[in-house]
Nucleic acid binder design. Structure first.
Length: 298
DNA sequence: TTGCAGGGGTCAA
DNA sequence: TTGACCCCTGCA
């Protein structure tokens, strides 16, 4: 079995159980998965990354400018992964636009293979509610526990993995069961938000059509969702590119690099980001975050 | 071995 | 604006 297609500038080929996308630039698996936007991946010792997303398991490998997606086919590439990896966006061009001053130049160079993923909105919302007052390894553990407890099994290579729980699955879950996944005081937030959404729905298009500030404001009506969580959920599901999530790392690096170590309010940081990075402030935030965290700046 | 400090967003007062 | 919330890691 061998078939091929064209997607934008990419030649895409399917063979056996994998898909090869040719001519992929600005795509580094470490940068993409380890920059804090995704939680359900494993760095395999053979250089591949295993990803659990969209009710599927895939393995990814980058060989030169070839991106290889194992355990997949052209249909899934078309329906899911092309959008998920935001392959229609020209990151080479976008980086040139952003890197017009020395600080951002450095951050972009450091994380040059980053792409912002367009992940499932519901999954992002719950994941970032869990992220509040929490560290990345702990967030990943809690999410895995929740998937194992409430999600449907997916089988791959004789191993059992679990899909991210649906709205209904979490809405019907007992708060104490959620707490048993080490979600702590966030358990009530997750339960209440799941029940709210199960009743009223969660439509990405509704938020996409709103002005960004308004979208954040609407998101904050959900329990456990403040500025940071709302911004992250909108950014990492590809709904808004012009949000600027501010956590302690971003606050530190912004103060250190742009405010000469002076005390600065989040409101000022946000305003600065909007003025300097404009429409691209979401991706700018991601370069800065990765740069700050990996280099322990601040 | 135990115990304590540190880390980190949102809510409610 | 401030304290409480939870749980893991690192270190004494």
């Amino acid at each position: 079995m061998f078939s091929r297609m064209k997607y934008f500038n990419y030649d895409v080929e399917e063979k056996d159980t994998y898909v090869t996308v040719k001519g992929v630039t600005t795509f580094d698996l470490k940068h993409i998965f380890e920059c804090g936007q995704a939680f359900r991946w494993q760095n395999k010792d053979n250089g591949r990354y295993l990803l659990i997303a969209m009710n599927r398991i895939i393995e990814l490998e980058k060989k030169g400018q070839d991106l290889i997606i194992y355990n997949s086919n052209l249909e899934d590439f078309n329906d899911i992964w092309a959008r998920y990896f935001d392959l229609e966006t020209d990151y080479d061009n976008l980086k040139k636009t952003l890197a017009n001053e020395p600080i951002m130049s450095k951050a972009v160079e450091f994380g040059k293979g980053i792409r912002i993923l367009k992940q499932d909105f519901w999954e992002m919302l719950v994941s970032f509610i869990i992220s509040a007052n929490n560290r990345i390894p702990m967030i990943m553990k809690t999410i895995e526990n929740m998937c194992r407890t409430f999600g449907k099994p997916i089988y791959y290579n004789q191993k059992e993995y679990y899909a991210f729980p649906t709205v209904e699955e979490l809405a019907n879950a007992d708060v104490e069961q959620i707490r048993a996944c080490s979600a702590g005081y966030r358990s009530e937030y997750i339960s209440e938000t799941a029940q709210n959404i199960n009743k009223n729905g969660l439509d990405p298009d509704f938020f996409a059509k709103l002005k960004t500030d308004q979208a954040v404001k609407e998101m904050k009506k959900l329990k456990g969702v403040g500025d940071k969580v709302a911004s992250c959920a909108l950014l990492f599901s590809g709904i808004k590119k012009d949000v600027f999530p501010i956590d302690v790392w971003i606050e530190r690096i912004m103060r250190c690099l742009y405010f000469e170590e002076k005390e600065v309010k989040n409101k000022e940081i946000k305003q600065f980001a909007n003025e300097h990075f404009g429409e691209l402030c979401g991706i700018a935030q991601q370069y800065l975050f990765y740069y700050a965290r990996e280099n322990k700046i601040g």
